[in-house]
Write a protein that binds this DNA or RNA. Structure first.
Lengths: 228, 228
DNA sequence: AAAGATAAATGATAAATATCATAATTAGAA
DNA sequence: TTCTAATTATGATATTTATCATTTATCTTT
């Protein structure tokens, strides 16, 4: 099994300040998991006894509304970590993490994480910063959901998807989402999302190649996202 | 000037695990401020060099949208703390904190806070839990903004305002907000908020006494907030 | 108490968005 | 491959929400 001290993913997340010894300890206790597309890494309301470090693959963080609708809160990719909020706050998991494609994930038991939090203030601080940043993004999101029209939110979301996942060799945003998932991200009906995507294509701002989306005019999208 | 070791507010927030010595240190360095209605305690984008502990009075945390509209993210009252997120993440303040009435506030310099974070893991953990809980609430809020109609969000907001501020001696929600502020909380036009409040009054669910709002049928409101 | 300013209320209308229906396309399974 | 189911697309319509206009009420200041 791979060794945490060698793992390239640790460079991208809050684990980067861990010492060699700490990473050895993680390595000894960690388990590697394969999560198939559609399966959950974590489930809303469940308790959790460790931290997940994403090696490879993408997932969505969702919340099920009282009316049964799914809201996508955030996207996760390789290098991200999951579950630290729940470990730190000693609360159940708040969101579902559902694989958008097959994933490779490492699970590090809670005990090791808590040990490192005690021993390594910088690690602790990095986790806090991570959560802080999420809160900051969430507040921005509230404001946009509340006040921006659907079209603006769609433009914003497309830009942010390209930011997060980058583009493939055909310059398409490198994640495959259903129209329903796009709708559940921006908070609208699936048909509305489809319609607005079609309009953006008609206007030459994006191109649609099956489920793949290519941004043709980033500036135009940015303007739309800001209401122009 | 009052002494932190005696302060009743410390019982209600993350400061409750501080030792007597730590509180003495806070007491020596703290400053007390009066913030008049309409003034800002913190301003979006500014940096901050300490933590605010609210003694008395209420404020709103807002975000200014790119279109110039104000979104109210959260309400704050006596016993709450402000600024810890910014201190911990070493980022500028993300939200405006604007007094809804005259306030008494204590300011504790950053250095003392950081010392206590180093010395007192439980204090540190409490701050993390506080931010964690805020993140959890924010995620719920995103979901509701995105998927619930305005009427449901208004009902939800009224219940939550009563939860936060309690009721006065006439059973009215104990905070005075303009209709515009209510609209900016639920993310709608002022006229829409006014109209929906009038409807709720007509249906006997709430009573409107000037700016004061009295919840008459909490169950009905809860049902409305869940879409029934 | 009166005057002016601000906020609240309400009606009329327009715009945004959701819903329902149905066709076209795509993906997945036998 | 071929069939079936799911997804995407699009039109028609209904509903929700915003905007504009105007009136009424409330608050401030003198």
């Amino acid at each position: 099994m791979s060794n945490c001290t060698q793992c390239i993913m640790k460079r991208f997340n809050a684990l980067k300040t861990l010492t060699h010894d700490e990473l050895e300890r993680f390595s000894d206790h960690k388990t590697s998991l394969i999560i198939k597309k559609g399966e959950n890494i974590m489930t809303e309301g469940n308790s959790i006894n460790g931290l997940y470090c994403i090696q490879d693959g993408k997932c969505k963080l969702t919340k099920l509304n009282t009316n049964g609708k799914e809201q996508i809160i955030k996207f996760i990719k390789g290098g991200d970590i999951l579950g630290h909020r729940s470990i730190l706050s000693e609360e159940p998991v708040g969101l579902n993490a559902t694989a958008l494609e097959d994933m490779r994930v490492c699970f590090i038991p809670k005990g090791d994480i808590l040990d490192s939090i005690k021993d390594n203030p910088q690690f602790s601080l990095n986790l806090i910063k991570n959560i802080s940043l999420q809160l900051s993004h969430a507040n921005t999101s509230i404001s946009q959901m509340a006040q921006k029209p659907v079209k603006d939110r769609l433009a914003e979301t497309l830009l942010s998807l390209e930011e997060i996942f980058g583009v493939d060799n055909e310059d398409c945003i490198d994640v495959i989402l259903t129209r329903e998932e796009i709708a559940n991200t921006i908070g609208t009906a699936t048909e509305s999302a489809i319609r607005l995507l079609s309009n953006l294509k008609k206007d030459g701002v994006i191109d649609l190649l099956g489920k793949k989306i290519k941004i043709l005019n980033k500036n135009a999208l940015k303007n739309i996202s800001e209401g122009y």
